[in-house]
Design a protein around this nucleic acid. Structure first.
Lengths: 175, 175
DNA sequence: GACTGATTGTTGAGATATCAACTACCTCTA
DNA sequence: TAGAGGTAGTTGATATCTCAACAATCAGTC
């Protein structure tokens, strides 16, 4: 019916690299709507999580970084590892960490085994900040996401994401 | 085992508004991992879609806007409607449209029935741009997402997103 | 050891997004 | 019709992200 995002109405395919011959396989309504709904959900959800955190003085991104650090016994993590785990560009990690350093939430430390490397280390202040924010944050995630879903749906998400991520990793370079 | 993002290690809950009494209900490993994987998937996927579009001169955001416009018979859409459909702040829509106007992809038009309102209207050039980009984009969405999933998984996504979005809408204001 | 190519992280410039005003208009009520 | 409160959209300042370039180091090979 509607053809937003992947318009079925557009029929004059030009410069079509991936489907060099003939008509491309357009998405069905169901496929298109599912992708749209998922994108919208993710946007609204992260916006909501961020706004619920606002009282704590942490952004959702700050929280994510600090949570990553508390996962390590020594409260530290390599920049490159953040980049991978969060799906952030390395420069994004670097810039964001710089900002967090200015606020006293984390520190940088050099890596003894790889002299190029740098650790991000959580400070006491950073630890206090996430400890204060965590219960409220988890409650928000529950209220707006987890508690709305059946266990099977959580499993479905995991399976889907794993499949997609594995495929992305397998095709890192090619277009 | 791991406790990233929602550290089970953090036990000293303070300032906990949402769970005023006692220990918060932390997320299980499965719940935490599923949410993390989903977030990562979305990030990597949109990054990949954007990078696949790069040859066309359109960003993923540009594509999204143009696709929304081609969905309308007159190739136009209200700013407020974009805001809702894409989950963008209205100022984000406004700024982005301004940039697209400079590139000749869209225009603004006043709304006769609501004099506060503004339409975003696709131009011929905008139409040419998305027509050129669409087949490749759809192919990318298929390659990295849709074609990897069973029909039942697409349905599951739709159901989950609908549930979550409905709940978000129901709790627009309260914290 | 020294060369080559890849990896790690930072930086600065430019692009994009958010936030808080602000204007203009609508809608409802009296 | 006037007023009050809400909605639509823009703007500018600020915050954040991306991209390309760069320096430093690593890993493998000769």
């Amino acid at each position: 019916m509607t053809d937003q995002l992947f318009p079925t109405r557009i029929k004059n395919a030009m410069n079509n690299v991936n489907e060099p011959s003939g008509e491309p396989r357009w998405l069905s309504d169901a496929e298109r709507e599912a992708w749209k709904a998922l994108s919208l959900m993710q946007l609204q959800l992260t916006a909501r999580l961020g706004q619920a955190l606002s009282g704590s003085g942490l952004s959702y991104q700050d929280y994510t970084v600090l949570a990553g650090l508390t996962d390590d016994p020594d409260g530290r993590m390599r920049v490159v590892e953040f980049s991978r785990q969060l799906g952030w560009e390395k420069s994004r990690v670097s810039h964001h960490v710089s900002r967090m350093i200015e606020r006293g939430l984390v520190t940088r430390a050099s890596c003894p085994t790889d002299k190029r490397g740098a650790f991000v280390v959580i400070t006491d202040e950073g630890r206090r900040a996430i400890e204060a924010a965590a219960p409220g944050h988890v409650a928000t995630v529950r209220k707006f996401f987890i508690d709305l879903l059946e266990e099977s749906q959580v499993e479905a998400i995991q399976e889907i994401a794993d499949t997609v991520l594995a495929n992305l990793k397998a095709n890192c370079d090619d277009r």
